[in-house]
C-alpha cells in the first residue's frame, strides 16, 4: 500500500502529463480558541485534512461535495489566500506554501479566482472599469491609462458586457452580468489557472448556461485550466474532465468524470449521485435512490476510523478501527479511498 503522495508520483512517471498544479497532503486546520484574556487553542476545525491531487494543464477538474466538506477551503488554500497548516502546493513547479511577499504576488498573476456570490464579491463603490483594471494597476501593467482602458473595454466585450457601461456601478447590473464582471477581473492578468468557486450557484437557471458556455469558450480560446468547485453534480459532469469527490476534508474518490459518474465506487459517491434529481419524470419514476441517513459530522470532532462510518450503508468492523485508506487506483486513473474497495 502506498501513501497518497506516492500514488500521485507514480502517476506522474507513468503517463507523463504536464501538471500545472500538484497538491500533496494539504491540510488546513482552523484553530478553535477559548478564553477572553489568555486565548488558548482548545481544538481545530479540520477543514482540509490531508488531500493530494494534481491538475493537468488545460483540463477542468471538478471538486464536489456537500457544504462544509472543505472544497472552498481547498481552493483558497491552493491560492494561498489561506496559508496551509501542512503539506505542499506546487504551481508550475514552484512551491507556493513557503513563498511570500513579492514572489507570491508575482505568482498570483498566473492564478486567479472567480467567487460564488456576484453581489458580495464586487465593491459597490467602484465602477466596472476600476474593478476590472485594479489588478492591472497592482501589477503595473499598461502604464498608459488610455491603453489600459482600451484593454479593459476589450475584456468587457470578450465576456459579453457592453463596453459602453464601463463607468457604471455593480448595482446597475443583473446577477449574470455581475458574474461576467467577476470573470473579466479574473482574466485581466491573463492567468493560466483559475479557481472557480461555485461561480453559477447564485444565478438563475436560465443564466447558468450562459455563464458556463462563456467559461468553456474562454477555456478553448485562452487555454485556461480550471479548478471548478461546485455542488451541482449535473453541471460538473457537463463542464469537467475529471472530478474529485470530497467528504469531511478528504478526497474519497477521484477520476475521469464519466468513469466516476457511471461507475461510482465509494458508497458516498454512490449515494450523492443517486440523490441528484434528474429533470425527467420517466427516469425519476424508475430510479433506485440510496438514501443515507444523518448529517455531516462536525469537522472539529471527526469520527474515529473512516470519516464516513457514521452514515455509510455498507460499514463494517474495519471502518471503525482503521482510518480511511489512501486513494487506491481501482481502474485506470480512477482512485477510491474505501475499506470495502481495498
Amino acid at each position: 500500500m502506498s501513501s497518497p503522495a506516492m500514488v500521485a508520483d507514480e502517476r506522474k512517471t507513468r503517463d507523463g502529463d504536464d501538471y500545472i498544479l500538484e497538491v500533496s497532503n494539504l491540510k488546513k486546520h482552523f484553530p478553535i480558541s477559548s478564553g477572553i484574556v489568555f486565548q488558548r487553542q482548545v481544538g481545530a476545525v479540520r477543514a482540509v485534512d490531508g488531500i493530494s491531487f494534481n491538475v493537468i494543464r488545460g483540463e477542468t477538474l471538478g471538486l464536489v461535495g456537500e457544504s462544509g466538506c472543505g472544497k472552498s477551503t481547498t481552493g483558497r488554500t491552493i491560492l494561498q489566500l489561506y496559508r496551509p497548516t501542512e503539506g505542499s502546493v506546487k504551481f508550475e513547479g514552484q512551491e507556493l506554501s513557503t513563498m511570500a511577499g513579492n514572489d507570491l504576488r508575482q505568482m498570483r498573476r498566473r492564478m486567479q479566482i472567480i467567487f460564488q456570490d456576484p453581489f458580495a464579491s464586487l465593491n459597490p463603490r467602484m465602477t466596472v472599469g476600476s474593478i476590472v483594471s485594479e489588478p492591472l494597476q497592482i501589477h503595473k501593467m499598461y502604464a498608459n491609462k488610455q491603453e489600459r482602458q482600451q484593454y479593459v473595454e476589450q475584456l468587457m466585450e470578450r465576456v459579453g458586457l457592453n463596453p459602453y457601461f464601463i463607468n457604471r456601478y455593480p448595482h446597475e447590473f443583473s446577477g449574470g452580468q455581475r458574474q461576467r464582471i467577476g470573470i473579466a477581473r479574473a482574466l485581466a492578468l491573463q492567468p493560466s489557472f483559475i479557481v472557480a468557486d461555485e461561480p453559477i450557484s447564485a444565478l438563475d437557471v436560465s443564466i447558468q448556461a450562459q455563464v458556463v458556455n462563456l467559461m468553456e469558450e474562454l477555456q478553448d480560446e485562452l487555454g485556461l485550466t480550471y479548478l471548478f468547485i461546485a455542488h451541482d453534480l449535473s453541471m460538473v459532469r457537463h463542464i469537467c474532465d475529471r472530478v474529485a469527490v470530497m467528504y469531511l476534508g478528504k478526497i474519497v474518490e477521484l477520476g475521469p468524470v464519466d468513469e466516476v459518474y457511471d461507475n461510482p465506487q465509494h458508497p458516498y459517491t454512490q449515494a450523492l449521485l443517486s440523490a441528484v434529481p434528474v429533470p425527467d419524470p420517466v427516469v425519476e419514476d424508475n430510479r433506485q435512490r440510496i438514501i443515507i441517513s444523518g448529517d455531516l459530522p462536525n469537522p472539529a470532532n471527526p469520527p474515529t476510523g473512516c470519516n464516513f462510518n457514521t452514515r455509510c450503508p455498507v460499514v463494517f468492523d474495519l471502518c471503525y478501527q482503521e482510518p480511511d485508506p489512501p486513494l487506491i487506483e481501482v481502474r485506470p486513473d480512477h482512485y477510491v479511498s474505501c475499506h470495502r474497495v481495498v
Binding site: 458556455n213 449535473s234 459532469r237 457537463h238 464519466d258 441528484v276 434528474v278
Partner: peptide, 16 residues
C-alpha cells in the same frame, strides 16, 4: 439549458 446527470455532456448547452 440544463445539463443531465445521466448523460455525458459533450454538446454545448443551449442558452436563453
Amino acid at each position: 439549458s440544463l445539463p443531465r446527470l445521466d448523460s455525458s455532456g459533450e454538446e454545448k448547452l443551449t442558452q436563453i
